[in-house]
Design a protein around this nucleic acid. Structure first.
Lengths: 229, 229
DNA sequence: CTAGTAATCCATGGTTTTATGGAATATTGA
DNA sequence: TCAATATTCCATAAAACCATGGATTACTAG
């Protein structure tokens, strides 16, 4: 085998990672896995995929080394193979956003105007990680995690209150009055916190979103708690 | 269009970047472009591709926003769309290496034992960026760039001497005696510096490789010079 | 050891990539 | 305007990928 073929063989290996990242469905799975491990069925449901389809995609990710598995009785839990994978995923989204106009367009279609919302004279819609950390440590803000309970359990901002978005309107009473509320969810392209803030403001609460979400919080090495299983 | 479809549409956009990275040939092109802009023909030759094939791959990269073009007379120069792309490419290789055993295997097949070389009691084969920077600034080492001239011109380590590998054996005399020589080339998986060190040592010169290469040097924000065109 | 659950395997048909070579296009220099 | 050069476009055929549903495997609880 000549040098040229050896080089190609090496680069073909790198490409396995790219191929694995080259499917929207698989990226949705990675997005979920970035919040913590999950079973195949749970992933299939959450991503809106058939079971066989989800299984096949997960195995493609495994072949590419991006996820690993853990068996527990009859269930198999998938998880990201490492923090480097989460970082790669995050950077890939950043690159896409930097260079593809369609990303911004689809983002707005999905999330609404978002960061540059019509501020209507209201308080800002979004606060930075640094601000939130400072205000959380000072105890001057209620941090609200609106992700599904399972994801909260796996990792959350210390001191955060867990109210999954589905339950929020019924549980508004649990939120202390007279304090700003900062809601967060999975990451930069997660819709949950957007909807939570809308709902809270409709109820007259002073609410804002954390910039991005748990994924980026974790990658910034900020403190994280988890409930032991 | 429901929320589910909107989300899929967004993630499908992210996937465009992944798809573009999902081909060994395209990664070889990115690897070359990470050294500086090049024309289609030059890329095709360097990557061992047919002209039409190279052009098609480059356009795929352009569609994914990873490269941009600049026309100069009858030629078109391709270049990476930004430093974030180089960073993504570099991280992707790291992730692949971290999680795919085959990468290490093919790397060794292509480059030789490499970092963990049999040291035969000789001086170490490889030095870090920090060490090189310090020794270069102190002037106690000859820094040797063995990439093609064009790439040297686009960006090189300040003070480095340019001797493309092809010319090295004929130009050994230009290297000052009595000083350590540190050779470098494109990046972590570039073969040129490996071969240069072998050649230099056969000639009895005290030579080592820079850890990784220009790509990683640049991404570490270390100083870079370029020859004005 | 049998029934039931979770996940994977497998065959299928439909879509998308890929390499290639020749035709078409754009630009420059004569 | 014409010829030469660099690149892209296009048609084609081979290969790879994808979703799907039914069969199969792996494990657990009884």
């Amino acid at each position: 085998m000549g040098d040229r073929e050896k080089k190609s063989a090496l680069f073909e290996q790198f490409a396995r990672v790219g191929k694995a990242l080259g499917s929207g469905k698989r990226l949705e799975l990675i997005d979920l896995l970035a919040q913590g491990e999950r079973t195949v069925e749970s992933l299939a449901t959450a991503a809106g995929l058939g079971l066989s389809t989800a299984s096949a995609h997960l195995q493609a990710l495994k072949q590419a080394g991006l996820v690993s598995t853990r068996r527990e009785g009859t269930r198999i839990h998938y998880q990201l193979a490492g923090d480097d994978v989460a970082r790669l995923y995050s950077l890939m989204r950043t690159v896409a956003r930097n260079h593809l106009a369609e990303v911004e367009q689809k983002r707005i279609a999905y999330l609404g105007q978002g960061e540059f919302d019509a501020d209507d004279g209201d308080a800002p819609q979004e606060i930075t990680r640094e601000d939130l950390l400072a205000r959380a440590q000072a105890g001057t803000v209620t941090v609200l995690d609106v992700r599904p309970r399972q994801e909260f359990r796996a990792a959350h901002i210390p001191g955060a209150l867990s109210i999954p978005l589905e339950e929020l309107s019924a549980r508004l009473g649990e939120l202390p009055l007279g304090r700003d509320i900062v809601a967060y969810c999975r990451g930069a392209y997660c819709v949950l916190a957007y909807e939570a803030v809308t709902l809270l403001r409709q109820d007259g609460r002073p609410a804002a979103r954390l910039h991005e979400g748990m994924l980026e919080w974790r990658l910034a090495n900020l403190p994280v708690s988890s409930d032991a299983a």
